[in-house]
Amino acid sequence: MSKIGQCSVCGETRKLGKSHKKCHPCLYQARKARMQNRCTVCSKLLSLNASALLCKSCGRKGELSPNWKGGTQSNSGYRLTRMPEHPNSQRSTGYVMEHIVVMTEHLGRPLLPGETVHHKNGVRDDNRIENLELWSTSQPYGQRVADKVEWAKQILALYGPDFADTTAPKPVAHGPSAAAKALQTAIAELLETADRLDSIAGEIV
């Protein structure tokens, strides 16, 4: 029940709120200020006298944690890094596997459903791009030939431009070309004709 008294904020004698310490105008201003004083990460309300921009929970996560060592490692041996903004990160924790980050940066896009990243040498924390392969677990809808052909078209349309072998060496022609062979034959015939003419000229003389 409200009562008349001296406000602990403005000092005026007014009708006080339920706490019997602040008047209604001061309570409104405090509530308005509190609504603007939120954590910049999770938007959680902060105390009125808080000087930090993060709540206690967000201020102890990731790089802000005193125990931060550049990342973490899962029980299965994969390195993790906290990147809440990454499309392939876990929504609950904000962490994403480091080899996925490396592959997505290499591809220039996030991983699609059904895509995984394989370590060639089996070492799960060796995340050099040379050691990573993009795998796909997608399968055709059925075993009919028409289904497989349609699936093959989709795979080629998706991965064909990225994995086309543009560095394959061009076949080298061995031996002279057809035009060169024809020229050599013509020259041989001319030489043979010249020798024959010389022989005839000697007989006449």
Rank of each mutant, 00 (worst) to 15 (best):
Pro25Tyr: 03
Cys26Val: 05
Cys26Pro: 02
Cys26Ile: 03
Cys26Asn: 01
Leu27Thr: 04
Leu27Trp: 06
Leu27Gly: 10
Tyr28Asn: 12
Gln29Leu: 14
Arg31Phe: 12
Arg31Ala: 15
Lys32Asp: 13
Ala33Pro: 06
Arg34Glu: 04
Met35Gly: 11
Met35Lys: 13
Gln36Cys: 11
Gln36Ile: 08
Asn37Ser: 06
Asn37Leu: 07
Asn37Pro: 01
Asn37Gly: 01
Cys39Val: 00
Thr40Val: 12
Val41Glu: 10
Val41His: 03
Cys42Met: 04
Lys44Cys: 09
Leu45Phe: 11
Leu45Tyr: 09
Leu45Arg: 11
Leu46His: 01
Leu46Tyr: 00
Leu46Ile: 05
Ser47Ile: 08
Ser47Trp: 11
Ser47Cys: 11
Leu48Lys: 09
Leu48Phe: 10
Asn49Leu: 15
Ala50Glu: 01
Ser51Asn: 12
Ala52Arg: 15
Leu53Met: 12
Leu54Asp: 07
Leu54Gln: 09
Leu54Tyr: 13
Lys56Pro: 09
Ser57Leu: 14
Ser57Asp: 13
Cys58Phe: 01
Cys58His: 03
Cys58Trp: 02
Gly59Ile: 00
Lys61Met: 15
Lys61His: 10
Lys61Phe: 07
Lys61Ala: 10
Glu63Leu: 14
Glu63Gly: 10
Leu64Thr: 10
Ser65Phe: 06
Ser65Asp: 09
Ser65Thr: 06
Pro66Ile: 07
Asn67Glu: 15
Asn67Phe: 15
Trp68Ile: 08
Lys69Ser: 15
Gly70Leu: 08
Thr72Ile: 08
Thr72Pro: 08
Thr72Asn: 13
Ser74Gly: 12
Ser74Val: 06
Ser76Phe: 14
Gly77Ser: 02
Gly77Arg: 02
Tyr78Arg: 05
Tyr78His: 09
Arg79Val: 06
Arg82Asp: 03
Met83Cys: 10
Met83His: 07
Pro84Arg: 00
Glu85Pro: 10
Pro87Lys: 03
Asn88Ile: 05
Gln90Cys: 14
Arg91Ser: 13
Arg91Gln: 13
Ser92Glu: 12
Ser92Cys: 09
Thr93Gly: 02
Gly94Val: 05
Gly94Tyr: 02
Tyr95His: 09
Val96Gln: 01
Val96Thr: 01
Val96Phe: 04
Met97Cys: 11
Met97Ser: 10
His99Arg: 06
His99Ile: 02
Ile100Asn: 01
Met103Ala: 00
Met103Thr: 00
Thr104Lys: 02
Glu105Lys: 15
His106Cys: 09
Leu107Tyr: 03
Arg109Ile: 07
Pro110Cys: 01
Pro110Asp: 01
Leu112Met: 15
Leu112Lys: 14
Leu112Ser: 12
Pro113Met: 02
Gly114Asp: 05
Glu115Phe: 00
Glu115Ala: 04
Glu115Pro: 07
Thr116Asp: 14
His119Gly: 03
Lys120Ala: 08
Asn121Gly: 03
Asn121Met: 06
Asn121Asp: 14
Asn121Ser: 06
Gly122Tyr: 04
Gly122His: 02
Gly122Thr: 03
Gly122Ile: 05
Val123Pro: 04
Arg124Trp: 08
Asp125Arg: 09
Asp125Glu: 14
Asp125Tyr: 12
Asp126Pro: 07
